[in-house]
Design a protein around this nucleic acid. Structure first.
Lengths: 85, 85
DNA sequence: CATCATTTGTTCGTATGTATC
DNA sequence: CGATACATACGAACAAATGAT
């Protein structure tokens, strides 16, 4: 359980970037991506979801804004040590 | 005074969208764009700044996120009645 | 009620820059 | 130096909401 693949429904009224952000958020909450650990790279997520780079970045940016992840240029994106309430 | 044109310095280390957001923020603080009043449309700002639509939108989105403006689909962007502290 | 112009919203593909290893 | 990864920006297309005609 919890190992569902990332799937984006293009026919959903919910924007793709929000769908992706929500699913990544769920994985963080589910411990699939643990605090301090890395998130898959944007390139990887682009391939897995079929979304464009900018759309994936927008999802990541949303999570970063919420405090769920921290992006480090040249390194990657990491789950925050302290998750937002 | 205060009627300076919007100018983006492409050689600045400060990203274009941040420059634009800052200048619009200054105009709001300066009362050039009054609370409840409209901001120039994205199309207009695109023309005045020479920036791409997405870049202008990013600036607007930043201000909306900060609470300075409110965007209404199909209508336009308006200065918030209560500006953030 | 239908149509159109205007405006914001989403997404894509690409290019280039910067940082890290 | 080269590979990888994030950051900014562009240009284009299409959708959805709104208001006027």
């Amino acid at each position: 359980m919890g190992d569902d693949r990332l799937v984006i429904d293009l026919r959903s009224p919910e924007p793709s970037y929000q769908q992706l952000a929500r699913q990544l958020r769920d994985r963080i909450h589910g411990g699939i991506y643990a605090p301090g650990g890395p998130l898959p790279s944007i390139t990887y997520l682009t391939g897995e979801t079929g979304l464009a780079v900018n759309t994936v970045r927008r999802a990541i940016a949303l999570l970063a804004d919420e405090g769920y992840v921290i992006t480090v240029p040249g390194r990657g994106t990491y789950v925050a040590d302290k998750l937002p309430e």
